[in-house]
Design a protein around this nucleic acid. Structure first.
Lengths: 133, 133
DNA sequence: CAGGATCCCAGAAGATACTG
DNA sequence: CAGTATCTTCTGGGATCCTG
């Protein structure tokens, strides 16, 4: 809501103190982006229930292309968040699973998910009133 | 690490149970994307310390263009995460601040930030060994 | 000072077809 | 089955110039 007040109270400095916090959070942004893409979190969430094969992942995560699934799985593996195990059967089977690291990440991420679940209504309401002008 | 095991143990079903969790998380992904862009979280983090004017934000968040700052601020305002207050002075001043909603969001996000701070080393190590082949 | 309006680009996302 | 290869589309991010 764009209000119109009367007296500014902020100090117009550059806030050097905040700078330090920012430096610390500089690293956070890239990770947030990695995890904040369209599919990564969904994959991780599925894998929380246990290891999963490629085709099952593809069927479970509705709408993802094998292309994107491959890419995201690779990126997650590179970051050490999931592991990849190949079974030399015929036809070949590949099983993906969360690593310990990936599992530990899922915790704060699920918290964020809870927040969204609890507040998405407010967000959407805000959007409507905002768009209404 | 791409291992090679010997016997697959996963059930090849479609996992309908997981489906329900996924449905719940479908809404999470878009919000994660909103917050997971390059600047949103940095802006929110700065605003945790208190209201802030446009120019101060721009100076504090190093590297952001006024264009992007404007865009992201608008998006955050639309979602009800920050408020915008205009002071009709000359020259005009505009002050941005976290709303209650935005503040509550900052909590789970900072937890995620803590996780990153604690584990970024492992991630980078994993990347190196992965890229080394 | 705080933006709006344009133009531009690299890389992300996706569709499709092919392969060990 | 689990990918790779290719092509096209889309969009996040940025540079630049202009204005109340």
């Amino acid at each position: 809501m764009t209000n119109t007040g009367s007296k500014p109270e902020t100090k117009p400095e550059t806030r050097p103190e905040t700078r330090h916090v920012l430096e610390r959070c500089r690293n956070v942004a890239p990770i947030l982006q990695r995890v904040g893409d369209k599919w990564s979190m969904l994959i991780i969430i599925v894998l929380i229930d246990g290891p999963c094969r490629f085709s099952v992942l593809k069927r479970t995560i509705d709408g993802i292309s094998q292309q994107m699934l491959t890419r995201v799985l690779k990126a997650l593996e590179r970051d050490g968040l999931i592991s990849r195990t190949t079974y030399p059967t015929s036809p070949p089977q590949v099983e993906y699973a969360l690593t310990e690291l990936g599992l530990s990440l899922s915790e704060p991420v699920l918290r964020l998910g809870d927040w969204v679940r609890d507040n998405i209504g407010r967000i959407e309401a805000s959007r409507e009133t905002y768009d209404a002008r």
